[in-house]
């Protein structure tokens, strides 16, 4: 029982948790800066990048896919800015044009190429493959302290831990300028803070978290985790520090509860199958947000 849990459930729970934390951290700033839908846009635009990377490299290994996804995000950001600036179109609509077009392009290339027979498909990008990230070599608690066994953990885990650390360090290191420009961009600028650069860096960090999380956990978790935990936390406190900590707690809780609810609960109630963990984690984070919206201390708009 415990052995099974460590082999089959612990790695996905940890991966989902670190992915959730890495996404929720920048989300705290994005929801305050009215850039909440960046995660949504990124999750659509990476598809052509991933597909093209697959066609070029011929393999579904991680590095080319991450590069493809990163390149596609970059193209999308440039296109959105070009349409906004030269076309004088507001941000939301410009984003809508770019992400739907790029997603359509991705689907088209995918359907036209042989890739549809490999496990790379649209559903994979959307839902991830959390359930398949297992640690077969694990042999009870002892494995957690055995270096040779730990090395055989799914590589996604190390990647997500690394990305989480990068994101956390970024937020910690630039906490003051980030806070200043989030609440009063003009004041921040008078202090000589390069707000444009920090804004860009925040988007890049978000993209990094999102892109590396896609492969492992799918884009639903990414969008949900950028938004729901910070939004719920914002309805519970007025302090940004507290908001960040609460959002991390909610992200963590959603991942753990969501995975257990999807992977174990159906079996406890006598069903013979499990349901999508990615979907369940997003659902649980939504339930947290629902409760915060109903009972949060600071839920109402101050007028």
């Amino acid at each position: 029982m415990i052995n099974d849990f460590i082999a089959f459930s612990l790695p996905p729970i940890l991966i989902a948790s670190f992915a959730a934390l890495a996404c929720a951290l920048p989300g705290n700033f994005l929801i305050l800066r009215k850039q909440a839908l960046i995660g949504d846009a990124i999750s659509h635009v990476v598809l052509p990048g991933i597909v093209l990377a697959f066609l070029v490299s011929g393999s579904i290994s991680t590095v080319p896919m991450l590069l493809g996804a990163a390149a596609a995000s970059l193209v999308a950001v440039v296109l959105i800015e070009v349409i906004k600036y030269f076309g004088r179109i507001e941000a939301g609509a410009a984003m809508g044009v770019v992400f739907t077009s790029m997603f359509a392009l991705g689907v088209l290339i995918l359907e036209q190429s042989e890739t549809r027979n490999v496990h790379l498909d649209v559903e994979h990008v959307l839902f991830g493959n959390l359930e398949s990230l297992i640690w077969l070599e694990a042999d009870g608690w002892a494995s957690l302290f055995t270096v040779s066994d730990l090395a055989l953990l799914p590589p996604e885990l190390f990647r997500m831990i690394g990305v989480f650390l990068v994101v956390a360090l970024f937020i910690l290191a630039f906490w003051r300028p980030l806070v200043l420009m989030t609440f009063d961009e003009y004041y921040a600028r008078t202090l000589g803070i390069p707000t444009f650069l920090y804004g860009l860096a925040l988007v890049v960090v978000t993209a990094l978290a999102a892109v590396s999380a896609f492969d492992a956990v799918g884009s639903i978790i990414v969008i949900a985790m950028i938004l729901c935990p910070p939004a719920a936390a914002r309805l519970m406190t007025n302090s940004l520090v507290a908001q960040v900590w609460i959002s991390m707690g909610i992200a963590l809780a959603s991942s753990v509860i969501g995975y257990i609810a999807a992977g174990h609960m159906p079996l406890w109630i006598g069903l013979s199958y499990t349901v999508s963990a990615a979907g369940m984690i997003a659902t649980i984070s939504g339930i947290f947000l629902g409760f915060a919206a109903l009972f949060g201390q600071h839920r109402s708009r101050v007028t």
Binding site: I31, K34, Q35, A36, L37, G39, D40, G92, I223, A224, I226, L227, C228, A231, R234, L235, G286, L289, A293, G296, H298, R299, S300, R301, V302
Partner: peptide, 12 residues
């Protein structure tokens, strides 16, 4: 009913 911005609400 809450102080969330519209884009955050849409995304959530």
């Amino acid at each position: 009913m809450t102080r969330l911005e519209k884009d955050a609400a849409i995304g959530a």
